[in-house]
Simulated assay, not measured.
Amino acid sequence: MPPPSLAVLVGQTDAAQLTRVSLTYVEQRIKLYLRFGEPARITRLDHWRRVAVFLPGAVFCRIRWQANDYGTISWQLMVMQACTPLDAVQRIPGVLPGALLLLHAEGELVVRAVLAQIDAIDALGISPAAVSPAYWRTLCNRLAARLPLSAYTTERHAAWLAGRASP
């Protein structure tokens, strides 16, 4: 089911339908940013902080990079799907009210491997936000099992789109 349009949600006074994602940038310390996803809007809070707002059903990827005086201390990548208030969501720091976590990667090597997969999807001319949520879950499971990551193909994407279009 496609996500409702922004015009439908603008008329609602209840903003609980929307997922808010905190983004931060402090030079040489922390970078919390979106790798992909199409926010309905982005609000700038101050020089360092922004909030991206997503409609229900939107898929997005947030990357967290953090360093101290001695170098990088953490890498984290999460692919998430914004939900409605009726969906079961996972509580994720910086994501309100929460989201469905499709993929979670920790550590530089693992994050770089997932970024390579995202770049390969981009190279196919497919928006990573339009990729099947099942692919992101499969990638997460393969990471957990320490198996080679499977590639997303145009055939797989066509099958996903055909399955979504059928009643």
Results as ranks from 00 to 15, higher is better:
G125A: 02
G71L: 10
R35M: 06
G57W: 11
A162D: 00
V79A: 04
R62Q: 13
A113I: 01
L77W: 00
A52Q: 08
R137F: 07
L149K: 01
D46V: 04
T13K: 11
L86T: 07
L149C: 05
Y70D: 15
H157M: 10
C140F: 08
Y152L: 01
T153F: 01
G107A: 09
D119M: 08
L161H: 03
S127F: 07
Y33P: 00
Q81A: 03
M78E: 15
L161S: 05
T154Q: 15
S5H: 04
V89S: 11
R41A: 14
A159P: 04
V89Q: 13
A130V: 09
L115C: 14
L139P: 04
P167C: 14
A129W: 10
H157E: 12
S150R: 15
A134N: 01
M80P: 00
A162C: 00
C61Y: 01
L124F: 07
P97Y: 03
C61F: 01
V59T: 14
Y25L: 14
D69L: 05
L77P: 00
F36N: 08
I63S: 11
P97C: 03
A145I: 03
G98H: 05
D119R: 13
A123T: 04
V8D: 15
A7W: 12
A158G: 08
P128D: 05
W136E: 06
S150C: 09
R142D: 09
V114S: 06
P2L: 10
L55I: 10
G57Y: 10
T138D: 15
I92Y: 02
I73L: 05
C61M: 07
L147V: 05
D46W: 11
L9T: 05
L161P: 05
L147C: 08
I121Q: 02
I42W: 02
W75P: 00
L55D: 02
Q17T: 06
G94Y: 13
L6I: 13
T13F: 09
L23K: 02
T84V: 04
Q17W: 15
Q17E: 14
Y152W: 08
Q28C: 07
R29S: 11
E38G: 10
A130D: 15
E108F: 06
R44Q: 15
I73D: 04
M80Y: 01
